[in-house]
């Protein structure tokens, strides 16, 4: 896997003002890396992750993921890219309220047309490995914040993506639960070789990172 980011820029128009959320970013991400993006709110962390994960399009520059140019892909191609290569973890979990834990984790597999029985088996297995064996049939509203985030992480890795991008994954959790989540993601990185890019304010992530990148006013600094 290789991710090459060149001269990546994202400008938003807001009330007639141009806001450059990311400016001329250049970065190469190696397989198995655990990268932590640190920076203040509004510094461009989330925008950078969205561009990296194919959820947004750059104003200029490029993101090449194994040679696949995200900036020129159609919405259908980007959807395929996300379901095959990327896992997302959000600050507020973003689980579907109608579905239970297993079904939420099955979602990326179902998007890839994995047969339901296989998808259920894989989702259950991964949730059990995360210690959620007693919460499999619980809907999100019946789970604690830490449990919901673990379900969200399970959903992000169940389809064996090459890259997981996590936007403030511990932003809504207390310090003990945050540490559990940090440990969990680190274990996944070391045991499964999944590449992680985590945007956070939480300095506790620093000790787990292979690389720490600061982003401020849209500018990456290493």
């Amino acid at each position: 896997m290789s991710i090459i980011i060149e001269n990546l820029t994202k400008t938003y128009q807001n009330d007639g003002l141009s806001i450059r959320a990311v400016r001329d970013a250049n970065l190469t991400i190696e397989p198995g890396e655990f990268i932590v993006l640190l920076g203040p709110s509004g510094g461009g962390k989330s925008t950078f992750l969205n561009l990296l994960g194919g959820m947004d399009r750059p104003t200029s520059g490029s993101v090449h993921f194994n040679g696949f140019a995200l900036e020129s892909a159609t919405e259908e191609q980007l959807a395929r890219f996300r379901r095959e290569k990327i896992g997302f973890v959000f600050q507020f979990y973003n689980l579907l309220p109608a579905l239970n834990a297993v079904e939420n984790v099955m979602l990326p597999l179902m998007a890839r047309s994995v047969p339901l029985s296989q998808a259920k088996e894989r989702a259950t297995s991964i949730l059990v490995s995360m210690g959620l064996q007693d919460r499999l049939s619980h809907v999100p509203s019946k789970l604690s914040g830490g449990e919901q985030q673990r379900v969200a992480i399970a959903r992000a890795i169940v389809h064996q993506p090459e890259l997981v991008v996590a936007d403030e994954p511990t932003g809504d959790l207390d310090s003990v639960t945050s540490q559990e989540i940090i440990n969990l993601m680190h274990d996944l990185n070391t045991s499964r070789g999944i590449t992680f890019v985590v945007a956070t304010h939480n300095l506790a992530w620093r000790e787990r990172a292979h690389r720490i990148i600061e982003i401020r006013d849209g500018i990456l600094s290493y």
């Binding site: 919405e75 259908e76 959807a79 579907l96 890839r112």
Partner: peptide, 16 residues
Amino acid sequence: SREFTILRAVGYSPKT
């Protein structure tokens, strides 16, 4: 819209 956005984020195409 949030739920449909989640579906799109995890890889469901606009067509699906």
